[in-house]
């Protein structure tokens, strides 16, 4: 374990996971409150065709290029989702399912084409699905740090706007704020964070990293500011502990471990958070029953 701490690679990966957990936790607080938790899942899946297309069109495997492709495809998916819910009777959940499966299906189709070619993209689907946190380089961590800084600044800058977007959108609209544009802007920010997380935790689990810290934090505090800070902290804790656990049991995938750590945090919070927690509520009920008797 001590050796592990001194290990440069491990430190890099842990720092990257902490940054990722922190920023997705902070942003996830808004996603959670806006009841868009499943949107993260759909966006993450929708990025696949972008990754493959970026590779197909340029023939390069530069991570930045692939991330750009992912961001474009994710944004297209989000806009399609918003368009379907706005201009048809199809409900939000079905629209998410449609976008998710169509984009992922298209991505799989393209990926298979690429893989059928000689000397092609061997990284394969597994990396995309579960990420490869172990391959994080200091350059990737620098990108993650820049991303985290950007997310933090944008949240501070648009704090009031995003707050109103989450709690009382009609009031914002009545003030003459461009809520539609804010909505799109916020969702594109979510796309950006998801794309940054793809490399380390992958598609399937990125949505959990967005939602779980926020759900845990919500149980402990009521104020938005406190919730965002706590969610960021819990996300970072989940990131670091998942990384350490995966170093301890060599070979276990980091992404699923991070998600499992975040899920344990949620479970503990749901059970034990003061006042809201299930255990406390049961105790309260028992006490009330005792008083009545």
């Amino acid at each position: 374990m001590v050796d592990g701490w001194l290990d440069y690679t491990l430190r890099t990966v842990a720092l990257g996971a902490a940054l990722l957990g922190g920023m997705s936790g902070a942003l996830g607080a808004f996603v959670f409150l806006r009841r868009q938790s499943m949107a993260g899942d759909a966006i993450a899946h929708a990025t696949l065709p972008g990754v493959v297309l970026a590779f197909l069109l340029t023939g390069q495997r530069e991570p930045q290029l692939l991330l750009l492709g992912a961001a474009l495809a994710g944004s297209a998916g989000v806009l399609l989702w918003m368009a379907i819910t706005r201009w048809s009777r199809v409900k939000q959940d079905s629209a998410l399912g449609i976008v998710l499966s169509t984009f992922l299906g298209g991505g799989v189709l393209l990926l298979n084409l690429v893989q059928n070619r000689p000397g092609a993209y061997q990284a394969g689907l597994n990396h995309f699905l579960f990420g490869q946190a172990a391959t994080l380089l200091s350059r990737d961590v620098a990108i993650l740090a820049a991303g985290a800084l950007g997310v933090g600044l944008l949240l501070l800058l648009f704090w009031k706007e995003f707050q109103l977007l989450s709690f009382d959108r009609p009031f914002g609209a009545s003030l003459g704020w461009p809520m539609q544009r804010l909505d799109i802007g916020f969702t594109l920010l979510v796309v950006a964070v998801i794309v940054l997380g793809l490399q380390s935790v992958g598609v399937v689990l990125m949505s959990a990293l967005l939602v779980a810290p926020a759900a845990a934090a919500r149980q402990w505090v009521d104020g938005l500011g406190a919730m965002v800070l706590l969610a960021a902290a819990l996300g970072a804790v989940a990131g670091v502990s998942g990384t350490l656990l995966s170093a301890l049991w060599a070979g276990l995938a980091t992404g699923p471990l991070i998600v499992l750590c975040a899920s344990i945090l949620v479970l503990v919070s749901l059970l034990w958070a003061p006042r809201r927690g299930i255990v406390w509520r049961q105790l309260d009920r028992l006490a009330a029953q005792a008083r009545l008797r």
Binding site: F32, R35, S37, M38, G40, A208, A212, A215, V266, L270
Partner: peptide, 11 residues
Amino acid sequence: GLVAEDAAIAL
């Protein structure tokens, strides 16, 4: 009642 419907699935 601790989390909303969509979050429950996503968790």
